[in-house]
Deep mutational scan, measured.
Amino acid sequence: HMTFVALYDYVASGETDLSFKKGERLQIVNNTEGDWWLAHSLTTGRTGYISSNYVAPSD
């Protein structure tokens, strides 16, 4: 899985979204569905959809 880092804080707007904080590391589970990616937070252990605009590759 690809690992990304959050560029900004994000508060989930629905049950399927994932809230995260700036600097949080996220593993991308599925990024084939446009701008919203299914991600797993390595910080909180939660999984949900994130906006690809809010993250950048961590490598």
Rank of each mutant, 00 (worst) to 15 (best):
N53F: 14
E24N: 01
T47N: 06
I50V: 13
W36N: 08
S19N: 05
I50P: 00
S41E: 01
D9Q: 01
T44D: 03
G23R: 01
S51V: 06
D9V: 03
T3N: 08
P57E: 09
Y10T: 03
L18M: 12
T32W: 08
A6S: 05
L42V: 07
S51Q: 15
K22D: 01
F4P: 01
V29T: 06
K22L: 05
L7P: 03
T44C: 01
S19H: 04
S58W: 15
W37S: 01
T43I: 09
S51I: 09
Y8D: 08
A6Q: 01
W36R: 15
I28T: 03
L7Y: 03
V11G: 04
L38V: 06
H1R: 11
M2W: 10
L7Q: 06
F4M: 10
A39Y: 03
F20N: 00
S41C: 04
N30C: 13
R25H: 11
G45L: 05
H40L: 14
Q27M: 14
I50S: 00
Q27K: 11
N31F: 15
T32R: 10
E15M: 09
S51M: 14
K21F: 07
L7W: 04
I28M: 06
Y49R: 08
W36T: 10
T43A: 10
D35V: 08
V29A: 06
S52P: 15
A56V: 14
Y49P: 01
S51P: 15
G14A: 14
E24Q: 02
R25E: 10
Y10D: 01
W37K: 03
W37M: 06
W36Q: 10
Y54N: 07
K21E: 08
W37T: 03
I28F: 03
V5P: 01
N31C: 15
F4R: 03
S52H: 07
Y54W: 09
L7M: 08
T44N: 04
A12Q: 05
Y54E: 04
E33W: 08
V29Q: 07
E24A: 03
F4L: 07
A56Y: 09
I50F: 02
P57A: 11
D17C: 15
Y54M: 15
G34D: 09
T32A: 11
W36H: 09
D59T: 12
H1M: 13
A6V: 13
G34Q: 10
A56D: 06
K21H: 08
P57I: 11
D9K: 00
G45A: 04
H1W: 12
N30G: 15
E24F: 07
F4D: 00
E15W: 07
H40F: 13
L7T: 05
W37L: 08
S19P: 05
D17F: 15
Y49V: 05
W37Y: 05
L42D: 04
I50W: 01
N53D: 13
K22E: 05
V29H: 15
S19W: 03
G34V: 07
I50A: 00
F20G: 00
F4N: 00
V11E: 14
S41V: 01
E15K: 11
G48I: 02
A6N: 01
L7D: 03
Y54F: 13
V55A: 05
H40T: 15
A56K: 11
T44I: 06
G23W: 04
M2R: 11
R46P: 00
Y49N: 04
W36C: 14
T44Q: 05
S19K: 02
T44V: 01
Y8P: 00
D59N: 12
V55N: 03
S58T: 13
K21P: 01
S52F: 07
N31D: 11
K21I: 08
L26H: 02
G34Y: 08
A12C: 05
E15H: 10
S52R: 14
T47W: 13
L42N: 05
S52L: 09
H40C: 13
M2K: 12
Y8N: 06
Q27F: 14
R25W: 12
H1L: 12
F20T: 02
V29G: 04
S19L: 06
E33G: 12
K22Y: 04
H1N: 13
N53H: 14
G23T: 01
Q27H: 11
T43N: 08
F4H: 06
N31E: 08
T3F: 14
S51E: 07
T16S: 13
A6E: 01
E33C: 14
Y49F: 11
Y10K: 03
M2A: 10
T43K: 07
S58V: 15
G23I: 01
K21W: 05
G48Y: 04
L38P: 01
N31W: 13
V55W: 05
T43W: 06
A39P: 00
Y54K: 07
Y8S: 08
L18N: 00
L38E: 04
G45W: 02
V55S: 03
G34W: 05
D17K: 12
R25M: 14
A6L: 04
Y10S: 05
H40Y: 14
T16E: 12
T43F: 05
Y49T: 04
M2S: 10
W37R: 02
T43H: 08
A56I: 14
L26I: 10
